[in-house]
């Protein structure tokens, strides 16, 4: 398996193809709906050229009164991906504004996102529901906007050998599109065939 370190370079991105499994090492930033809106209305220098992880982690806070920037105050308990399609509407603008190199999530993203990563970015799929396993590979570096709530805050995470699948590459390929097209043919055939039971 290919190991990649953040920040990803242009060469890293272009050599990736759908179906590749890679191990991500370095820094990633969680962001869900609220964080995406915030990132578009404000500027966050630290995510420039970085990786966004669609995730609302379950985090243990050691001491509520401690400095929020103290990374020893937080332990990741469970941190799998959330559904990426909710972020479709914000993503092309986020990629444009911050030069995001990779998005990690689940369920895939739409054709506008596929267009906007062309030649410069990838979408990587983590497996939904693997929160316990992934938490072992992650440490909190920092948290911003905790007032949005635990799932919606922007958690800066240090990850070690985080395994993800390239499902949308920089060459306009998407596994989700292929699966959807193939399933559409079968779906149309199935709804044409009548249920014989009753």
């Amino acid at each position: 398996m290919l190991k990649l370190k953040t920040p990803f370079s242009q060469e890293d991105i272009l050599k990736l193809n759908v179906g590749d499994v890679i191990l991500v090492n370095g820094t990633i930033f969680t962001a869900r709906d609220k964080a995406h809106k915030y990132l578009l209305e404000n500027y966050a220098e630290q995510i420039k050229g970085g990786i966004i992880y669609h995730c609302g982690p379950l985090v243990k806070t050691i001491n509520d009164n401690m400095n929020k920037r103290d990374n020893n105050n937080y332990i990741i308990i469970s941190a799998g991906p959330t559904t990426s399609s909710r972020m479709n509407q914000f993503t092309p603008a986020i990629i444009e504004k911050y030069g995001i190199k990779a998005i990690i999530g689940k369920g895939g993203m739409d054709s506008k996102v596929l267009d906007s990563i062309k030649g410069r970015g990838v979408y990587l799929s983590a497996i939904g529901g693997l929160g316990a396993l992934y938490a072992k590979l992650m440490k909190v570096k920092c948290v911003e906007k905790l007032e949005f709530g635990m799932p919606e805050a922007i958690w800066e995470l240090e990850v070690k050998d985080f395994p993800v699948i390239v499902t949308m590459d920089a060459k306009e390929n998407s596994i989700y599109d292929s699966v959807q097209q193939a399933s559409k043919k079968r779906f149309l055939k199935l709804i044409g065939a009548k249920f014989q039971g009753i």
Binding site: G19, V21, C55, G56, P57, L58, I77, S78, A79, G80, T82, I127, G128, G129, L130, G131, A132, L133, A135, K136, P151, I165
Partner: peptide, 28 residues
């Protein structure tokens, strides 16, 4: 191989969460 691998990761996570009494998925 992708789907087989996904399912074995899922099963591995189930075992780990049970053993360590940790929420299987962060979305409880």
């Amino acid at each position: 191989s992708i789907s087989k691998n996904i399912l074995s990761n899922i099963l591995e996570n189930i075992e780990l969460a049970k053993k360590e009494s940790t929420p299987i998925c962060q979305d409880t």
